[in-house]
Simulated assay, not measured.
Amino acid sequence: MNKLSFYSVVLLATAIFLPAVSNAGDRVASGSLDTVEAFSSNYVKSRRVQVWKPEGYSQDTKYAVLYMHDGQMLFDSNTTWNKQEWGVDETATALIKEKKIRPFIVVGIDNIKDLRHSEYFPQKPFESLTENDKQRIYKAARQNGNSVFSNQVISDQYLKFLVYELKPYIDKTYSVHTDKDNTFVMGSSMGGLISAYAMMEYPSVFGGAACLSTHWPGIFTMTNNPIPLAFYQYLDGHLPSPNSHKIYFDHGDQTLDAMYPDLQKEVDKIMVKNGYTQKNWQTHVYPGDAHSENAWRKRLNVPLTFLLGQ
Rank of each mutant, 00 (worst) to 15 (best):
M1W: 09
L4V: 13
L4M: 12
F6A: 08
S8Q: 15
T14H: 13
F17K: 14
L18W: 11
P19D: 02
P19A: 00
A20D: 13
V21Q: 14
V21P: 05
G25K: 05
G25Q: 03
D26A: 15
V28M: 11
S32H: 14
V36T: 07
A38Q: 14
A38L: 11
F39K: 10
N42L: 13
K45Q: 11
R48Q: 14
K53H: 12
P54M: 00
E55K: 15
A64I: 02
V65N: 06
Y67H: 08
M68E: 02
D70M: 02
G71Q: 10
Q72W: 04
M73H: 14
S77D: 15
D89F: 04
T93W: 05
T93M: 01
K97T: 09
K97C: 06
R102C: 03
P103L: 05
S118N: 06
E119L: 10
F121G: 04
P122Y: 04
P125Y: 09
E127M: 15
N132C: 01
D133Y: 06
A141Q: 15
Q143D: 14
S150H: 15
V153P: 01
Q157V: 03
Y158P: 05
K160F: 00
F161V: 08
V163W: 06
V163D: 00
S175G: 08
M186V: 06
S188V: 12
F206L: 02
A209L: 05
S213A: 14
S213P: 06
T214C: 11
P217L: 08
I219W: 07
T223I: 11
T223H: 11
A230I: 12
Q233K: 13
Q233W: 00
Q233A: 09
G237S: 15
S241Q: 00
N243D: 06
I247E: 03
F249P: 03
D250A: 08
H251F: 14
G252E: 06
L256Q: 05
D257H: 04
A258S: 15
Y260C: 04
Q264Y: 04
K269L: 14
I270H: 07
I270Y: 05
V272M: 11
V272L: 15
Q278F: 08
T283G: 05
T283S: 15
H284N: 12
V285D: 10
P287G: 01
E293V: 10
R297C: 06
V302D: 13
P303D: 03
T305R: 10
G309Q: 01
Q310W: 02
